[in-house]
Simulated scan of single mutants.
Amino acid sequence: SHQRPWSVPVTRLKGSGEMEVVLTKPRFHLDLWIAFTVQNWLLDVGRPVVMLLLPVEWFPLSRPCAAEYLHILYNITTPLILLKLLERSPRTLPSLVVHLGIIAVVMGTSLHMVVDTITLRLLQVGYQLHLSIRENPLMTNLKPSSLTFPLSCPSRYVPLFLVLFLFFSGCFYHKKQEKMMPPAAWMLLLPNAAYYWYLVTEGQTFILFIFTFFAMTATVMHQRRRGLVPNSNGLFMLYSFSAALFLVAIWVICLWNDSILRRKHPGLIYVPQPRAVYTLHLRTNTQT
C-alpha cells in the first residue's frame, strides 16, 4: 500500500475491521496553518478594510478595484493551501475525493468573487448594508422588482467547511500517544478563531458553521470509543471552532437590542454583519 514519509506501515486498529494509517509522531503543520491564517486575514478580511481606507474615486466602476485584486489572489492561494492540508492528512484520502473537494473550493471562491464584486459596485452607488434589500432606496427604484436578489450566498462556503472537515476526520491517533498542542498552535488559535467568527458573521454562515462543529464533535466521540484522540492539528481546529462560537455569542449579545439590525435579520437566527454595524453606527459617528 502507498505510504508517506511521516506515516508508519498500515496497522489494523483494535476493534475495527478496516485498515488505516496511523502516525507515530503526529506533527503540527505550522507552516500551512500560518499561511492559512495570514492569507485569510490579508486577502479575505483585508478586502473590505481596503475599500474603507482608500478613496472611492481611485477605482472607477468600469475597472477592477483593489479589493478585487486581493480576491483574485485569495482564489489562488486558498485551494493550494487546502490541497496541501489534504495531502498531509494522516488518513489517505481517495484522490477523487481530494480533486472534487478542491474543484468545489475553486468554484465556491469564484462565486464568492462574483457576488462580492456586485456588492462593491452597489456600495459605490449608494447601497446601505445595514438595511434589508427591499428597504434600500437603491433597490426599491429597480424595475422590474423581480430583479432584486440576495447579496449573501452562504452556500459558497460549503466546499471550504467540507474540506476542513475531511482533513479533521483524519487527525486522530492512538490514545497512548496523546500530546498537548505546541505553543505555536496556541499563538495561532485566537487569529484563526477570529477569522471563523468573521466567516460566520460577515458571510452569514452560522448554520453551516454549527453543523460542521457538531460533526467534528460527533467524530471525536466516535473515535474515542475506538481508542483514538485528536492530534495537535485536530485539537487546533476543534479549539478554534469552539473559540469562534464563543466570539459569535458575545457579538450577538452585544447587538441583541439593535432594532435596525433586527429588521434586517428578522428570522430566528440573528447574527449581524460587521460591515452593517460599521455603516450604521461607526461610519455615521466618524462623519459627524
Rank of each mutant, 00 (worst) to 15 (best):
P5R: 10
R12Y: 10
S16K: 13
S16L: 10
S16I: 10
G17Y: 10
E20L: 15
L23E: 15
H29Y: 03
F36Y: 12
N40H: 06
N40M: 00
D44P: 01
R47Y: 02
R47N: 01
R47V: 02
M51V: 06
L53R: 06
W58S: 04
P64N: 04
A66T: 02
A67T: 01
E68C: 02
I76T: 00
P79Y: 10
L80T: 06
I81N: 00
L83S: 09
L85K: 04
R88S: 06
S89D: 13
P94M: 10
V98T: 11
V98P: 01
G101S: 03
I102H: 00
V105Y: 00
L111I: 08
H112K: 01
T117I: 05
T119V: 05
R121P: 05
L122N: 08
L123M: 14
L123A: 12
Y127V: 05
L129G: 08
L131A: 06
S132L: 07
I133L: 12
I133G: 03
N136C: 12
L138F: 05
M139S: 14
T140N: 11
T140Q: 15
L142Y: 12
P144Q: 11
S146F: 12
S146G: 03
F149T: 12
F149K: 10
P154H: 12
L160D: 00
F165L: 12
F168Q: 03
S169M: 08
S169L: 07
G170N: 09
Y173P: 02
K176C: 11
Q177A: 10
Q177D: 09
L190F: 13
P191S: 06
N192I: 02
A194T: 03
V200I: 13
G203L: 05
L208N: 06
I210G: 04
T212I: 02
F213Q: 08
A215V: 03
M216P: 00
A218R: 10
A218L: 14
L228T: 04
P230Y: 05
N233D: 14
N233Q: 06
G234I: 06
S240K: 02
F241C: 13
F246Q: 04
W251A: 03
V252S: 09
L255C: 08
L255D: 06
W256H: 13
W256K: 15
N257L: 15
D258R: 03
S259E: 12
I260K: 04
R263L: 11
G267H: 07
R275H: 10
V277H: 07
L280R: 10
L282P: 07
T286Q: 07
